[in-house]
């Protein structure tokens, strides 16, 4: 087996007639935490959705391990070992925390659920405290932990996360990212989509910068954090959409 867990090759995808991904290629190796950063609308979420089949790719390939999963359905993707923590969490709000986690193990073999459950509760102890509460009554941070926990329940070989920091307080965000560090240390392979570039790069091994449906830059996290363009546009130096420098310097 190769050490590449996920290989995305020249992926094109979109909605209706609107092309959102215009040939994206990236690679995630075993045990890596790789992040995809970029502004709103750059296609980051669409990229994750096309990997798991919530959006059907128009062209290009998605290879997971040795297997071409370009036209897989979401329910098959999780069975083959790719779990997505979706944007907006998509929890089963009327159901209890425990039921949400149990459903997370729906795709895995019987008997594996209990072990996964204790691992998730060890990672997020608050979830076991809230076991019988309905997911809708959790705080935003707890809901995000539950969303991550639910995805982990399937024992994935690749964990995809879509904007886990969205709408959360800084203290809660650092809790979630601390958990991602723990997961990575335990050998989990993670592809993280984040709008908060600085945060994502601080925790990732490597990063890709997406811009209008393409990968504009890639490199190690340290290189990207030091890159002038990245600093200018994504780490707080940008003056808004009319900033001419930004448009020309990263224009494809």
């Amino acid at each position: 087996m190769s050490d590449t867990v996920l290989q995305v090759e020249e992926l094109h995808a979109g909605y209706g007639h609107v092309e959102v991904l215009r040939g994206v290629s990236l690679r995630v190796d075993r045990g890596e935490l790789v992040t995809v950063i970029g502004a709103n609308g750059a296609g980051k979420s669409t990229l994750l959705k096309s990997i798991v089949g919530m959006v059907s790719p128009w062209e290009g390939r998605v290879v997971f391990g040795d297997r071409d999963i370009s036209n897989i359905s979401p329910e098959k993707a999780v069975r083959s070992g790719v779990a997505l923590v979706p944007e907006g969490r998509l929890l089963f709000g009327a159901m209890s925390v425990e039921e949400n986690l149990e459903l997370g193990a729906y795709a895995s073999r019987r008997g594996e659920g209990a072990a996964a459950m204790s691992r998730v509760c060890e990672l997020f102890p608050v979830l076991s405290e809230r076991r019988t509460q309905s997911a809708a009554t959790l705080s935003g941070g707890e809901q995000q932990m539950l969303a991550v926990g639910r995805a982990l329940m399937s024992n994935p070989r690749l964990l995809l996360l879509d904007e886990p920091s969205l709408g959360l307080a800084p203290r809660v965000i650092s809790e979630i990212f601390a958990a991602l560090d723990v997961l990575r240390a335990s050998g989990m392979t993670i592809l993280l989509v984040e709008q908060d570039a600085r945060l994502a790069l601080k925790h990732a091994d490597r990063g890709y910068v997406m811009r209008t449906g393409r990968v504009a830059l890639e490199g190690s996290s340290t290189a990207l954090l030091a890159n002038d363009d990245v600093r200018l546009i994504y780490l707080g130096g940008w003056n808004g959409p009319n900033d001419a420098r930004a448009d020309t310097e990263l224009g494809g």
């Binding site: 919530m54 329910e75 997505l84 998509l90 459903l103 997370g104 729906y106 995805a151």
Partner: peptide
């Protein structure tokens, strides 16, 4: 409750 979320955990 949520068809897409259900698909993500492997429910058909």
């Amino acid at each position: 409750i949520d068809r897409n979320a259900a698909r993500l955990v492997g429910i058909e």
